[in-house]
Design a protein around this nucleic acid. Structure first.
Length: 856
RNA sequence: GCCGGAGUGGCGGAAUGGUAGACGCCGAGGACUUAAAAUCCUCUGGAGGUAACUCCGUGCGGGUUCGAAUCCCGCCUCCGGCACCA
């Protein structure tokens, strides 16, 4: 033993090298090992390798999964714990333009940075299984899955109104746009008609909804997906247009209010608008439609607080009572939802109410029960109301019914007369699946001159990205791939025709939709994955990542997985059995009155206030999201350089519960670093560099007190780690170390057990001390210790004695003391008797092992 | 507006019907040292009291219970999601 003090840098390098030399974390793949042990697949959401490198938020989830992977390995599981790169994407393409390099080169550089940073933390990934969604070996299979989607009729081209982002020069999916802006960058998005690839995710809406039930996911994420899918039950009702041989269908969730429909509204894009508008109204209607269609989403939603619309001059016939009601055009009705047409019931719908008041349209009450007059406020409650004014031509009536019964009754009536039917409507739209970018998967599609789209066969894969000289759209607005050389763009089809390749590419989500499957068998060049590997490893047992993917990635991946399930390519309906979202790590920032930010090292604290060192100016402090512009980003390399990877890992988990947001505090890293030094000193005498002289070869029970603390600690660390409550597991290990620091004797056996539960958390330190203790083999592969339930309780435990619910005394008694003994002991207490005084004892509540409460 | 989550010392947090504040940070005192750092030990929610001890205390107001941070009702604040989806 040469080194005396704890030197993280030295031991971390040493053990990372050993692990690599011994291939300690290779995923087992020989059939015998696989068959003989249970499996555990623990997965991180793989990162997009940005140019900025890792920040301390990334390793938070990675550390948690690594602790889990290491513990499961020690418990005898075959563990699959891989890492890879979500490597296609726009930032690399933009950097390529900026630096005049190929996106692949930028991507490779960023991946090397990320990998290096991740590896310094000593994670037990199987790097033999590293994947990269932008490598041909990978994306040929993404293209292959696209063929499966196409074969099933789930991929199609359509002229659709798209979210076009001029700044990025590409279209975006609904899921990527919020309030008329791209969620990532905030760039505004416009509405445009374009011919684009779509994936029919709506065909899976009900299954995506139903199968949420079986998942061990945070309730909030399930709820967000339910909201996004947005199932609602209602009815479609057909309305005739008066004086025309035309009709249109509306969707409503409240068919019970049909008698209260006083007008109808068509979306500006509705095909009937043109046909039914009267000459008198034509000018106004055309102007309105033109303006509405060209409005950006931002104008149509967020800013449009007051409604607008124009009367078409035409009238519809309400099928239940034969009354003619006006047909309006208004952009508060969306073309993309339902049928793009509604019946308006101002008495019982807030939006219709607002519109009716604005344009002085009639309001007819058909459900009674509102608190305020119907002219003032729409009554939308479905639980209490009773139907009124709802008697039809042929004596049909739903008057007197409650809303739910009225809905069922009228749907039946509409269906009998073939003028309507029950309808389940989803908010979910089909997934816009093409992008006008270079750095993405090319589609295995060729277009012929006569407009036919031909899908290429499996044998034609991969379709490799061609080299092009500029990564920008062409002058006439076609995607960058239109710049590709002719020998790429032009393809001779098997029948001799010449076609042109599709020049759109797939969105970044494509690669991440199935990467968890490629990890199962990443080097297979015959198949995307083998059946045996899929059967063995799937589903993912634990999936950890940020909540920002609650809808996007997680919904898309579930959709693809279900398609693969229908193709017989996977055996589970769902890919991710348990999902866990880690909370964001925030940081303190410092700002002066003018709003200028300062780095933490530029600021000092005096009496609870903060001042700039240089000029004494007072600054305020706040907790914010880490950001370069706020000067509060914490770099993991610095933390590791100063305290070591083990301290970094420990602090990431000790900060608080994994799922909550919490601020990074450097002072607290020192705390866990001190803890690791204390562990070091339990084994190593820093003065001599020899083993601590208190270490003995006596059995564990020779140090009875410490042995009890050990067993309690094993139990708590085991349970808390399984339940992803690593912060309290670490607290318990601190309790053990505090106890051991003052213990007279340290049996080798006890230290060995403790080091094994510490190993998943601080693996480098644990390996080093394990070796120092003279143990054979890697601690990372040692068996997880068992705890003895009997040793988890003390011989005497504190029993609280309350009088009228207030603690008055505390007695040390055996944990298995009976009710009578506890009561007797409590009543014998001097202090307790003082509080009872002369009062009569009315009741005594005894909770064995806990407390006695005397009620007077 | 609707849906979800949270509110506990100076700070991060623990306790999910049974001792409120585990563990860590900060702070105070002591030991070691020529000294400092490091380390080790003790104290550390508030108020009162020389002390034993007492009272108060988990966003606010009520309730259930022998007993509530925890369960129920009503509010306030903050965070996240959705939002003209008929």
């Amino acid at each position: 033993m040469t080194t005396r003090i704890y030197d993280p840098e030295r031991i971390e390098e040493k053990w990372q090298r050993r692990w690599e030399e011994q291939q300690a974390f290779r995923t087992p793949d020989d059939p015998e090992t696989l068959r003989s042990r249970p499996k555990y697949y623990v997965l991180d959401m793989f990162p997009y390798p940005s140019g900025a490198g890792l920040h301390v938020g990334h390793p938070e989830g990675y550390t948690a999964t690594d602790v889990m992977a290491r513990m499961k390995r020690m418990k005898g599981f075959n563990v699959l714990h891989p890492m890879g790169w979500d490597a296609f994407g726009l930032p690399a393409e933009r950097a390529a333009v900026r630096e005049g390099k190929h996106p692949a080169e930028i991507t490779a550089r960023n991946i090397n940075t990320f990998r290096g940073q991740i590896q310094r933390l000593g994670f037990s990934y199987d790097w033999e299984r590293e994947i990269n969604t932008s490598s041909v070996d990978y994306y040929r299979w993404t293209q292959w899955i696209f063929l499966k989607l196409y074969e099933k009729g789930l991929a199609y081209m359509a002229d659709v109104p798209v979210n076009w982002c001029p700044k990025l020069g590409t279209v975006l999916a609904n899921e990527e746009v919020k309030d008329g802006r791209y969620v990532e960058t905030g760039d505004p998005v416009e509405r445009r008609m374009m011919r684009q690839w779509m994936l029919k995710i709506t065909a899976y809406a009900q299954r995506l909804l139903d199968d949420l039930e079986e998942l061990d996911w945070p309730e909030s994420v399930k709820e967000m997906q339910r909201n996004w899918i947005g199932r609602s039950r209602g009815a479609e009702v057909k309305f005739r247009v008066a004086g025309h041989d035309l009709d249109f269908t509306v969707f409503t969730t409240r068919p019970d209010t049909l008698f209260g429909a006083t007008y109808c509204v068509l979306a500006p894009e509705h095909e009937l608008v043109e046909k039914i508008t009267t000459d008198e109204q034509r000018k106004k209607v055309e102007a309105y439609v033109r303006e509405a269609v060209n409005k950006s989403d931002l104008d149509r939603t967020d800013l449009a607080k007051t409604k607008s619309g124009v009367f078409t001059g035409a009238e519809a016939i309400n099928p239940v009572n034969g009354k003619a009601i006006p047909i309006w055009v208004a952009d508060y009705v969306l073309a993309s939802y339902g049928t793009g047409a509604i019946m308006a019931v101002p008495a019982h719908d807030e939006r219709d109410h607002e519109f009716a008041r604005l344009y002085e349209l009639p309001i007819v009450e058909v459900v009674s029960g509102g608190d305020r007059p119907i002219e003032e406020e729409a009554y939308t409650d479905c639980a209490e109301g009773i139907l009124i004014n709802s008697r039809g031509l042929d004596g049909f009536s739903i008057e007197g019914l409650r809303v739910p019964e009225a809905i069922d009754t009228i749907i039946k009536w509409l269906e009998e007369r073939k003028i309507g039917r029950e309808k389940i409507q989803y908010r979910l739209r089909d997934w816009l699946f093409s992008r006008q970018r270079y750095w993405g998967e090319p589609f295995p599609i060729v277009h012929t001159e006569d407009g036919e789209s031909i899908v290429l066969g499996e044998e034609m894969l991969p379709i490799e990205l061609p080299e092009i000289d500029e990564y920008r759209p062409t002058e006439d607005g076609r995607p960058p791939l239109a710049r590709a050389p002719g020998d790429w763009l032009k393809v001779e089809l098997p029948d001799g025709r010449i076609g042109t390749r599709e020049t759109n590419t797939m969105p970044q989500w494509a690669g991440s939709c199935w990467y968890y499957l490629r990890y199962l068998d990443p080097k297979n060049d015959q198949q995307a994955w083998s059946e045996e590997a899929e059967n063995y490893w799937m589903p993912v047992d634990l999936y950890v990542g940020g909540v920002e993917h609650a809808v996007l990635h997680l919904l898309y991946a579930r959709f693809w997985h279900k398609v693969l399930y229908d193709c017989g390519l996977v055996h589970t309906r769902e890919p991710f059995r348990k999902l866990f979202n880690q909370g964001m790590i925030l940081a303190y920032s410092y700002q002066d009155k003018a709003g200028k930010y300062y780095y933490p090292h530029e600021v000092e604290e005096r009496d609870g206030k903060f001042f700039v060192r240089e000029n004494g100016k007072e600054v305020t402090t706040q907790i914010e999201k880490m950001s370069k512009s706020k000067f509060n980003v914490v770099n993991p390399d610095e933390v590791i350089g100063q305290y070591g990877a083990d301290a970094m890992r420990l602090y990431e988990l000790f900060m608080g519960p994994l799922e909550v947001q919490k601020p990074w505090q450097m002072k607290d890293v020192e705390g866990v670093s001190r803890f690791l030094q204390r562990v070091w000193r339990l084994v190593v005498d820093e003065k001599s560099g020899k083993l601590n002289s208190r270490i003995t070869d006596e059995p564990a029970d020779s140090a009875e007190e410490l042995n009890r603390v050990l067993h309690k600690t094993i139990r708590k660390v085991d349970e808390d780690t399984e339940n992803i409550r690593m912060n309290t597991a670490i607290a318990q290990m601190m309790i053990f170390v505090n106890e051991a620091t003052t213990a007279e004797n340290l049996p080798r056996e006890i230290l060995g057990s403790f080091l094994r539960i510490l190993a998943p958390y601080a693996p480098h330190l644990a390996e080093e001390l394990w070796e120092n203790l003279g143990q054979e083999g890697l601690i990372s592969l040692a068996a997880w210790p068992e705890y003895d339930e009997k040793l988890c309780t003390d011989e005497l435990i504190p029993i609280v004695i309350q009088v009228r619910g207030k603690k008055r005394d505390e007695l040390m008694l055996p944990p298995d003391a009976g009710r009578e003994d506890l009561e007797a002991a409590a009543l014998a207490s001097e202090k307790v008797r003082r509080f009872i005084g002369d009062s009569e004892i009315r009741r005594v509540i005894v909770v064995p092992g806990r407390l006695v409460n005397i009620v007077i």
